[in-house]
Nucleic acid binder design. Structure first.
Lengths: 206, 206
DNA sequence: TGTACATCAGTGAACGCGCGTTCACTGATGTAC
DNA sequence: TGTACATCAGTGAACGCGCGTTCACTGATGTAC
């Protein structure tokens, strides 16, 4: 080895990490190979020494982002009483801060729609990470059987993803805040009958 | 007038209609001007006699698709008893048929995530149609005040959009069917307490 | 009714540009002796 | 310890290609007289 054993791996990891931010910000097709390499302080020519194709980087960057999100949520909730965990995840996910910072947020709202049109191989990689995220969320639901928790977690994640996507279209004004609040209310008061559903005060944009 | 008065308008409408299908299928950036014009039986050179820019067509095509969806749902539900209307919309939206035919389906799952990154002007046009769709859905919710119905409709639409996007990543196998079923169950049994929530049989892929 | 003309929706070549990908090369690094 | 060498991560020019957009032109149409 002419270079330290970990040198290339470190560079590779740096490209993936920077790309995962930029791809979440600009979409799976919204930024080019040259700009992604520049983010990591490199030129575009070296790209194919690290990745078989641009699409391969998109997959790696997505997986990286999802792994970080899953780990962060597990860490955040592990010190909480079980009954509060699910609500904590939902409040964090459907916050103005998350809406306004896609680059550091969940990769699903940023990338899932575009990925639905990619190759089967790419979609499978995404689906696997999606399932991991569902499992993580299901663990936060304490008042249901494992099977029911999984189904509820699937639907809750869909609601969170859809809400964040729509809130981002709405920008950061009242319409957008209302969309976030509607999603939070739906997820956090779902056990109450519709007619008697209490209105939770909306957490406002800081 | 050298040509029939409606001639150019008809061509314009044909371009918009064909484009709305292809853009929903391939995404807001997934198909070029030349291919969109070819869909309408034209060559690309005439494009700028009809639209100020490619983005202008994307907006028109989105508006067209949303108007058609809203009208179709209103028509579908108007002959039903009020109590059945909301469920009918949800069942139709979260069906395998809708998942597998994005070109003729709702424009939100197909385009919203990409639109969240467009210009303010474009996002405003989208937001306006989104609000119309929320209004339409709120009208189908009979057992709540207007304000509560609007909030529930917002959250329900977010759940439907997120569910469809995630189901499309999942393809058309069991994972994807499970995602659709979870969304349907969450929306159609929401009044029941979590622990007692009944499992509705999933409508299977035809 | 017939002929010359004006209109304008649509054509297709061309524009500059940025993309993903390839490849011969560089130069900093550690090795051999 | 010093010098020649081998390695290989990273460079930057170049590739073919498709994109959005522009524009001089065409030719079918209806009008004028």
């Amino acid at each position: 080895m002419r270079y330290a054993k970990e040198h290339k791996q470190e560079t590779h990891a740096r490209i993936v990490k920077k790309a995962s931010v930029k791809l979440r910000e600009h979409g799976a097709h919204g930024i080019g190979v040259a700009d992604l390499m520049k983010e990591a302080g490199l030129t575009h020519g070296g790209f194919y020494a690290h990745f078989a194709s641009r699409e391969a980087l998109v997959v790696e960057a997505f997986v990286y982002a999802m792994d970080r999100s899953i780990a962060a949520w597990r860490k955040k909730t592990e010190t909480m009483p079980p009954a509060e965990r699910f609500a904590a995840v939902v409040e964090g996910y459907l916050s103005a801060a998350h809406r306004d910072d896609p680059g550091r947020g969940c990769a699903l709202p940023a990338l899932a729609a575009e990925i639905g049109r990619e190759s089967l191989k790419t979609r499978r990689a995404f689906a696997a990470k999606f399932e991991e995220m569902v499992e993580m969320l299901a663990e936060q639901i304490s008042d249901a059987s494992a099977e029911a928790a999984r189904e509820q977690a699937t639907a809750a994640l869909a609601t969170m993803v859809g809400t964040l996507i729509l809130a981002r279209v709405g920008g950061s004004g009242k319409l957008s805040d209302d969309i976030l609040a509607a999603g939070r209310n739906a997820l956090l008061t779902k056990a109450a009958p519709v007619k008697a559903r209490a209105k939770r005060p909306a957490t406002q944009n800081p």
